Structure formats: C-alpha cells, structure tokens
Simulated assay, not measured.
Amino acid sequence: MAERPIGRQKAQSANRVDGRGDGPVTRTVVLDAALAIIDREGVDGLSMRRLAEAVGRDPMVIYRHLPNKAAVLDGVAEIVFEQLSVDVTDTDWATRLRVVARDFRRLALAHPRVVPLLVTHPLATPLGLRPAALVRPLEAILELLTRAGFSGADALHIYRALFGFLYGHVLNELQEIVERPEETDEVLRLGLYRLPIEQFPLVRELAPVLAAYDGELELERGLDILLTGLTATLSGPVR
C-alpha cells in the first residue's frame, strides 16, 4: 500500500475503556485511559493510582503492563504519534511534508496537554532509547526523501528542519495566551502595556498583528519559507 502508517492506528472507540469496565485490561486499554486523564487534567493529574481507578482495577494490574509513570508517559506519546502517517511513495515530497506538518499540528491541537510529551520529553531521551513509534516518523520521512532522490544526509537535514519548525510552532501556538480577552485594544489584551515603549517599540507597533495570530496561516507561511529555503539551498534530489 502507498500509505505507510507510523505505527498502528488507534483502536475504534467501541473497543476502548475510558473509566471502569469489566473487559480485559491490556496495555492499550491502560494507555487510552492515561491519554484521557492527561487530556482532561494534564500530566500532573496522572498517577498510577489514578490510572488504576480509571480502569477499575488494582494498581498492581497496571504495573504488569507498565512499570512506572515514565513508561506510561512514553506510551501515551506513542499512541498519539501512531496516528501520524506518511505516504513514502509520494513523488511530490514537499507536498507530502506539508501534509505531515498539518497532521502533526492537528494532533497537537487535539491533545494540547500531551504536547510536552511529543515535543520536549523525547529530546531528553537518546534516539535509540525512544519508543519505536517516536522514531518511525524519522525513518518514514528519510525513506520518502531518499526515494525522491535526496542523499541520506540531506534527508536528515530536511527532517530536522521540518520538525524543529513544527515543535516551535505548536508550542508557540498553544502559548498564545490572551491575558484580558474582554479588552478590545490589542496592547491591553496582550499585556503589552507592561513593556516600556522606548525599549520595545517594534513589538508594541506589531500589537495588531500579534493579536490577530492565526495558527493555521502561520503554519502555512512558515512551511512556505522553510520548504522554499530547503529547495534553494540543497543541491536537490539526485536523479
């Protein structure tokens, strides 16, 4: 098949346990429950005891599948990343990378409290020690780009540039906090009145632009800049 899923697709909702149930407790059931907790309460709201309560079992049942909270967090990152897919046979590599970028943003916005597990947590773990699902995007994109004719080294540069941009983008988008939404003046809503105008004239001047932040448009503009730059600076696919 042309479409290569990065890991398994998430199970259908009918096969999941979100809360107490009488079905068998599997690793998938535990991780789905953990994802539901994090989506509602954040990573700090997750504990092994809280997780056991969510699946209606003794905590020792949880430990049979996942030895500690760190393993649970890795597993949650896995099941989210596994929803990402790459068509490695697509000959239009730039368009395919745009699709990957849009899908990554969609996952991040669907699970904003999981984003630290997708973005910052893996960076603290050596590549070879990360869960396989977190490494498969790298493998798939390397295959996509080398199939298109790029050298392995250039394919790696493109992957790093793309995901470096994506990680920064989703963190920035999720942190676009409006301090005083009832205010119509952009300077007040963004708290820019706290910045001395003589020290930050350009930031203050851009208040209307900052207030009109559109994550989707910012992503597309960033991809335009990134992919145009990569096309111009790399030697291009070897034919």
Results as ranks from 00 to 15, higher is better:
152 G>Y: 11
101 A>P: 10
123 L>N: 09
90 D>N: 15
106 R>M: 06
179 E>G: 10
230 L>T: 00
193 Y>E: 14
69 K>C: 04
167 Y>V: 02
40 R>A: 15
198 E>C: 07
140 A>P: 00
193 Y>G: 15
39 D>V: 08
181 P>M: 10
186 E>I: 06
134 L>D: 00
46 L>Q: 08
235 S>V: 06
32 D>A: 07
1 M>H: 11
219 L>V: 05
69 K>D: 05
170 V>D: 00
165 F>G: 00
225 I>Y: 13
65 H>E: 11
187 V>D: 09
110 A>P: 03
9 Q>F: 13
168 G>L: 02
79 I>E: 02
143 E>L: 13
50 R>G: 15
62 I>E: 04
41 E>M: 09
75 G>Q: 02
225 I>N: 13
134 L>P: 00
71 A>F: 07
79 I>Q: 05
166 L>M: 05
138 L>I: 03
229 G>Y: 01
113 R>G: 03
173 E>A: 12
70 A>V: 10
178 V>Q: 09
91 T>C: 13
186 E>L: 10
75 G>V: 02
102 R>V: 08
129 L>M: 12
234 L>C: 01
222 G>Y: 05
190 L>H: 01
105 R>V: 15
239 R>Y: 10
105 R>D: 13
226 L>E: 03
115 V>M: 04
136 R>Y: 03
205 E>V: 04
220 E>N: 11
187 V>M: 13
121 H>M: 12
86 V>K: 01
122 P>I: 04
137 P>I: 00
12 Q>D: 14
64 R>D: 08
149 G>W: 04
133 A>P: 00
207 A>Y: 01
170 V>R: 02
193 Y>N: 14
198 E>L: 10
18 D>S: 14
160 R>E: 06
121 H>V: 10
172 N>V: 11
27 R>Y: 04
195 L>F: 10
142 L>P: 00
153 A>H: 06
172 N>S: 15
18 D>F: 15
20 R>D: 08
152 G>R: 14
137 P>T: 00
175 Q>K: 12
14 A>G: 13
112 P>Q: 05
215 G>R: 02
66 L>V: 11
160 R>W: 03
209 V>L: 09
28 T>N: 13
162 L>E: 00
55 V>F: 01
129 L>G: 09
143 E>A: 11
1 M>F: 09
16 R>K: 14
95 T>I: 09
221 R>F: 15
230 L>Y: 01
42 G>Y: 08
16 R>D: 10
199 Q>D: 12
85 S>P: 00
122 P>Y: 04
238 V>M: 11
146 T>M: 15
3 E>S: 14
65 H>M: 09
224 D>F: 09
17 V>D: 08
132 A>Y: 10
166 L>G: 02
162 L>M: 01
